[in-house]
C-alpha cells in the first residue's frame, strides 16, 4: 500500500479501459492519501502548537496568557522580554549566553579535531589492538553515563577544576563522545581511498594526506558533528548543574532553571520569553543545516 503511488499509471498511457484491479488500486490510493493528510495535519498541529503558543505567549501580557489558548497575542508587548532579560541576579541574560559560548566553542572545536583524528586512525590503518579498541568504542556507545559520573566528579575535584568550565569541555578534546567518532568512521568508510593513495604515491605523509585530502572530503560529516555537539552542549543541563556553582558562571540552561525558581508564580511571560531566546540558537542551527542533520541521524543513529 505504501508504494502504490510508485506504480506507473499505465491505463492513461495505453488507453485501454482500466481493469478492475487498477480501479481498485486507484481508489485505494486516493482514500489513503486523504486519510494520511488528515492524520498528518492533526498530529502536526499537536507537535507544533506548543511551540507556537510559547512564542506567542512571550509577547503577551500575563493576563492574556491565562485567558486565551489562542497563540497569537492580541496586543503584542515586549514587557516579558524586558523583565526576563534583567533576571533576578546581578547579571542579565546576555551574560549567561556569553557563558554558554565559553563552553560551547572549545567543546565543538575539540570534538571536531579529536574525532577526525581518531576516526582516521580507525578507518584507514591497521595496528595492534585495533579490534579490541574498536569493540570498546562500540561498547561505550551503550555505557550509561550515570555509572561514571561520580568518579569523574571526584577526578575533576582532585584536579581543582570544580566551578570552572574545564570539566565540561576537556573530555571532548580526547574524543570523549564515542558516538561522534563512530559517526565519522561510518562516513569515512564510504569514501573511496584512491585520492589518498595517489597523494601518498606523490610523497605526502599521512598527516598531509589527512589535512589536504581527507578533511575536505569529510567536511559534511565534520559539520554535522559540530552542529550536534553545539546543540547538545547548549542544551546540557546536568553537566553545569554538577560542576558550576557560582551564578556568575551559569550557562543559559541553568540560568533558565534559576529564573523559574526565582520568579513569582504568575509572572509567566518573563520566563516564557527567555525560554524562547534559549531555544533560538538551536533552532537557527537546525534550520541552517536540516539536511545534514537528518542524514547524520539515519546513518549513525542518535540519542534524543
Amino acid at each position: 500500500m505504501v508504494t502504490l503511488s510508485d506504480l506507473p499509471d499505465q491505463s492513461r498511457a495505453d488507453r485501454t479501459p482500466p481493469t478492475p484491479l487498477e480501479l481498485k488500486l486507484r481508489r485505494q490510493r486516493r482514500v489513503s492519501s486523504a486519510i494520511r493528510y488528515v492524520l498528518l495535519i492533526v498530529v502536526g498541529l499537536i507537535m507544533v502548537y506548543p511551540l507556537l503558543w510559547l512564542v506567542g505567549a512571550a509577547f503577551k501580557t500575563n493576563s492574556e496568557i491565562f485567558n486565551s489558548p489562542w497563540f497569537w497575542p492580541a496586543r503584542p508587548t515586549l514587557e516579558g522580554f524586558r523583565e526576563g532579560w534583567e533576571t533576578s541576579t546581578p547579571y542579565n541574560f546576555g551574560h549567561f549566553f556569553l557563558n554558554s559560548m565559553w563552553i560551547v566553542i572549545p567543546k565543538v572545536i575539540g570534538t571536531a579535531i579529536s574525532c577526525t583524528l581518531v576516526a582516521y586512525g580507525f578507518a584507514r590503518f591497521e595496528f595492534p589492538g585495533k579490534k579490541i579498541l574498536f569493540a570498546i568504542l562500540i561498547a561505550t556507545l551503550l555505557l550509561p553515563d550515570v555509572v561514571t559520573r561520580i568518579p569523574q566528579y571526584l577526578l575533576f575535584r582532585e584536579l581543582g577544576w570544580l566551578d570552572t568550565y574545564l570539566p565540561l569541555f576537556v573530555p571532548s578534546w580526547v574524543a570523549g563522545d564515542a558516538f561522534f567518532v563512530f559517526m565519522v568512521i561510518q562516513f569515512l568508510r564510504a569514501i573511496p581511498r584512491e585520492m589518498e593513495e595517489a597523494a601518498r604515491v606523490d610523497g605526502a605523509n599521512t598527516a598531509q594526506t589527512l589535512i589536504f585530502i581527507v578533511v575536505p572530503m569529510l567536511m559534511p560529516a565534520i559539520i554535522s558533528v559540530c552542529l550536534f555537539q553545539f546543540m547538545w552542549t547548549m542544551n546540557d543541563f546536568l553537566g553545569p548543574l554538577i560542576y558550576i556553582s557560582s551564578v556568575e558562571k551559569y550557562p543559559v540552561s541553568i540560568a533558565l532553571k534559576l529564573s523559574i525558581d526565582a520568579t513569582e508564580a504568575f509572572n509567566w511571560n518573563a520566563i516564557l520569553s527567555m525560554t524562547v531566546l534559549a531555544l533560538i540558537p538551536s533552532l537557527v542551527v537546525f534550520f541552517l543545516a536540516q539536511k545534514s542533520f537528518i542524514e547524520g541521524i539515519s546513518t549513525g543513529g542518535v540519542k534524543g
Partner: peptide, 15 residues
C-alpha cells in the same frame, strides 16, 4: 522533527 531537535533542553521542560 523540531520538538526532538530541541530535545532534552531545559527550555522545553520549562515549556
Amino acid at each position: 522533527y523540531v520538538p526532538s531537535i530541541l530535545g532534552g533542553s531545559v527550555a522545553i521542560a520549562v515549556l
